[in-house]
Amino acid sequence: MLLKTTSLSFAYPGQPSLSFPDFSLSGGEAVLLLGKSGSGKTTFLNLLAGLLSPNHGEVILDGTVLSSLQGHRLDLFRGQHIGIIFQKAHLIAALTVKQNLELAQFLSKKNGSSPLALLQDLGIADKASAAVGTLSEGEAQRVSIARALINTPKLILADEPTSSLDDEHAQRVITLLKSEAAKIGAALVIVTHDQRVKSEVSQVLELKSE
């Protein structure tokens, strides 16, 4: 198993504790994370990414217990092994498309894949030296996928990646995510309530709010 969680729970200060079901995922597999608003989907994703640290339980990625890592080692581990895609692209506006990818490589100290080849795969190679501000939303989202993939992560987390895209782009983004994750053998977790996505991924994990 590439990704495994055991008896995870987390509580925001002054709020009741949220418990999450145990689950595991192999490389190349994809899972949809579903649930109503407030059921803790984003919290769960943050725990998986090591952005939040659980009150109980563990997240184990490829044999490493995330909560055992501290400070910069956790940051570096995240940069090297976890790719995160947000609802909006959130690229660094001061940099060009290619520089955004190079930045991800620099911060994770991993210089594996070539930014240009990846952009080629995602069909946006012609935008490599474009300023981020000139991209359409669909293009920007594809760049953010490229940024998440550039370090060939073991785990890809996507938080509502398609919610701000039209049908055509949503379809394209979800197909890309699946095929690229499969190509590099990464586990893919998608948080969504987008019907267009639900039909694409068979494995589902449903969070229930108590």
Binding site: L51, G71, H72, D75, Q80, H90, I92, A104, L107, S108
Partner: peptide, 16 residues
């Protein structure tokens, strides 16, 4: 602030 958070998710440390 958002940029900074993104940099952190990409592997940047607080020190960086």
């Amino acid at each position: 602030k958002y940029d900074l958070a993104i940099l952190r998710t990409l592997g940047a440390s607080r020190g960086q």
